[in-house]
């Protein structure tokens, strides 16, 4: 499968990665080569219906008992930007999620 630079830029946007022109150019070639290789999978017959995707081991459930939370100072200690007890980011414009 050959990706176009537009494909790579679209995926970069989904991944929240700002690629430079040069990066996008290089990644387009590299990703196409890798996709070409992995497409070798198309040769495999997967018609076998027993190929379960989900393992059915029961999930361990936690008891609903509170454990003390971090103090806000510890929780915010590593924050690149904060204001009082809030994390701070550039203004959020209500564009769609």
């Amino acid at each position: 499968m050959i990706l176009s630079k537009a494909d790579v830029l679209h995926v970069a946007r989904l991944s929240a990665l700002a690629l430079t022109e040069a990066e996008a150019e290089r990644m387009t070639g590299e990703l196409s080569a890798i996709l070409n290789y992995v497409e070798g999978l198309s040769a495999v017959d997967i018609s076998d219906k027993t190929l379960e995707e989900v393992s059915l081991s029961p999930t361990l459930l936690a008891p609903d008992v509170p454990v003390p939370s971090l103090s806000p100072d510890v929780a915010l200690a590593g924050a690149p930007d904060r204001s009082g007890s809030f994390f701070q980011v550039p203004r959020i414009l209500e564009e769609g999620r």
């Binding site: 590593g78 924050a79 690149p80 959020i92 414009l93």
Partner: peptide, 16 residues
């Protein structure tokens, strides 16, 4: 947002 590296003075949230 919460820890680690963040670019200095991004133009807006998306750029951050």
């Amino acid at each position: 947002v919460r820890y680690g590296f963040r670019v200095k003075k991004p133009a807006d949230l998306r750029a951050m």
